[in-house]
Simulated scan of single mutants.
Amino acid sequence: MHPPPLLALIFGIVLGFSGLSHADAPATEFFAIETSKLTKLAPTDADLDSLSRNQLDEVSLAHGWYNGGLAMRFDTATFRMDARFSDSAHTPTGDPASIGYNICASNNQKTWSLLAVQGSATRLGKQFVTENWRTQPVTVVLRFLNLKR
């Protein structure tokens, strides 16, 4: 279930403008996806590694990025998201072994109606993916995001 197109546009604009102020900061992009949809796109782990950010975004329940703060919040009258992480996908001292996450999204102000998931993602190819992702209802994919591009 995607937020309405207007919400996706607003969310993209907010992310775009917030990215301008952090153009030299390392960041992590995240995608929370229903595993059933993801396995259709990626029958193998190599296929998952080769998916573009646009392909992942098209099937995501929640998508965004965070930098050194290890959290991302977005809140309007019709869509809200709160995402918190234990680490970044890439740090100056090296990549972590795993990244813990807690991601919630909703199209109302009272409950997390779209998504409420927590877990741990480990390195799989060039990204971090929910441990045992094929057995989970929702898969989280975390990728290093180069904001200098």
Rank of each mutant, 00 (worst) to 15 (best):
V141Y: 01
S106K: 08
L124F: 05
D75T: 12
F128C: 05
L56Q: 02
L9V: 08
Q127T: 05
T122R: 08
A27N: 03
A71Y: 13
L9D: 08
P26F: 03
I103W: 01
F144R: 05
E58K: 12
L15A: 10
T91E: 12
T35Y: 02
A27H: 00
S60V: 00
D82S: 15
F85Y: 02
K126F: 11
H22W: 11
K110S: 14
P137Q: 09
S113Y: 03
A105F: 07
P137M: 11
E34L: 10
A105R: 03
R53I: 06
F31A: 02
F11W: 15
F30C: 08
R143C: 07
V59N: 00
I99F: 07
W112Q: 07
F85L: 07
K37G: 03
L15K: 14
T28N: 00
N107F: 10
A97T: 11
D95S: 15
A97S: 15
G94D: 02
D24A: 15
K126E: 11
G68P: 02
L147S: 01
H22A: 13
H63G: 04
A23N: 11
H63N: 10
R149E: 13
Q109W: 12
L9K: 08
T91V: 07
P137Y: 08
I13Q: 13
E29S: 10
L51R: 01
T76M: 01
N67Q: 13
S52L: 06
F128P: 01
P96S: 06
S52W: 02
G125I: 04
G125H: 04
L147F: 06
R53L: 09
H90C: 10
L15E: 12
T93A: 09
A23K: 12
L61F: 07
L147K: 09
S120V: 15
F85P: 01
H22P: 00
N108A: 09
A23S: 14
A89H: 06
F128M: 02
L61A: 12
K148V: 08
F128T: 02
Y101F: 15
S120G: 10
P92T: 03
T91Q: 11
V59P: 00
L48E: 03
E29R: 14
T76L: 09
A77Q: 14
L41I: 02
T28L: 06
T44D: 01
I33W: 00
L41G: 04
R123Y: 09
S60A: 15
S52V: 03
R73C: 09
S86L: 07
R143S: 12
R80A: 09
L48N: 01
N67G: 10
D87G: 12
N146D: 12
V14M: 10
P92Y: 04
Q55E: 14
D82L: 14
S50Q: 12
D82T: 11
L51Q: 01
A32S: 03
D24R: 14
P5R: 00
D49W: 05
K126S: 15
D49M: 07
P137T: 08
S88R: 10
R73P: 09
E29H: 05
D57Q: 14
R143P: 06
L147V: 05
D47E: 08
T122K: 10
